[in-house]
Computed example of a mutant assay.
Amino acid sequence: MPRMLDVSDDVRAEIGDEEADRLLAGENAPGAYDCTSCRTPGNTDQERTSTVLFVGQETAVLAFAHATCVPSQVVPVAEEQLRGAVRSITGEDTADPLAEAVPHGVSAAPQYASAAPSGYAGAAQPRAQAAVQDPPQQPGRAAPSPQAVLGVTSGVVLVGGEARPALVVEPTAPITRPGSGQGDDFLSLLTEQGFLPVVDLNRPPGPNHGWSVLIAMGQLHAVLMPSANGGAPVAWWQAHRPMPLSEGWRNAANRSRQVMIYAAPAGTIGTQPREDQLRAALDRAAASGALVGASMPLAGT
């Protein structure tokens, strides 16, 4: 029975005409699935469904999403991030992601990704930490000292009375310009990259064009920035392991298709156990002139 699948030209080019035709004919596609964007159930027999192909250097994962959530597309993902997602889905950290397929699991491409919902409703997410990638050919980006990493906390923040998905970025130590070795240049480096001072959290921060937030399989993978040579976006911040996002956060992101990114110097925000306390800490940072922000679209799903 033919499935109600959308296979974009980009996806078809990656998986080949033969595999794409098998999918459309219903030979190689599941009926029921968990949407890789909103994590709610879907069915290729009953509703229009997008095929979403996550592609690394060696690994590829074919997933499914409601067509109303995201269009069919190819999403580039760092190989290690993709393999980490495979391991988290299969529940086997040592599993070979190119092994034979498991039902509603992940294996060699084409494969069908499905993961259990995750999240911490009503609370700010545990902080994920990762070093900022800073190739020499991209001057002016935030560069940590060897001891500093960026902590990222997710939470739903009320902005103008509307629940908006937010990521709060705070280094574990002062960030200095390459070669400086003193002071804290974190905010000035970010303003040079298009972030703007935040003085009122009741208004969303302005867009930072070319930047985006990569959500894959319902988890946070990276914050992407434009490439200096005009090529594909590169990771400004990348999680060591995919970061779980609460159902409330994902729902807010699917509604707005925008993520609020707030950044503050080391020691400004701290670890806040509840979203109301996170908002209060952001308000204090804004009042003291120690907060910058930007709004960014979702990349991928």
Rank of each mutant, 00 (worst) to 15 (best):
L5H: 12
V7I: 13
D9T: 09
R12F: 01
R12A: 06
A13S: 06
A29K: 08
A32I: 05
D34L: 03
D34G: 03
D34E: 10
P41K: 04
N43C: 15
D45Y: 14
Q46A: 15
V52Q: 06
F54T: 09
V55A: 10
V55F: 02
V55N: 02
T59E: 09
L62G: 14
H66Y: 04
A67S: 13
V70F: 03
Q73G: 08
V77M: 08
V77H: 03
E79A: 15
E80Y: 13
R83E: 07
T90D: 15
A101R: 12
P103H: 04
G105W: 02
A109H: 11
P110F: 04
Q111F: 06
Q111C: 13
A115F: 09
A115R: 05
A116E: 06
A121G: 09
A123Q: 05
A128R: 02
Q129H: 11
V132H: 11
Q133Y: 07
P135W: 04
P135F: 04
A143V: 14
S145H: 02
Q147I: 10
V149C: 03
G155N: 05
V157M: 09
G160P: 08
R164Q: 14
P165Y: 07
L167F: 14
L167Q: 04
V168T: 03
V169D: 06
E170I: 14
I175G: 12
R177Q: 15
S180L: 09
L189Y: 05
L189T: 12
E192V: 04
Q193G: 13
F195M: 14
L196S: 06
D200A: 14
D200G: 07
N208G: 05
H209Q: 06
H209M: 08
W211T: 11
S212N: 12
G218S: 05
V223T: 03
L224F: 01
N229W: 13
P233H: 02
H240N: 08
P244K: 03
S246T: 10
A252I: 11
V259I: 12
M260N: 07
E275W: 00
D276S: 01
D276W: 09
Q277W: 01
R279W: 00
S288T: 15
G289S: 13
L291V: 08
A294E: 04
S295N: 11
M296V: 10
P297L: 09
P297N: 06
P297T: 00
T301I: 05
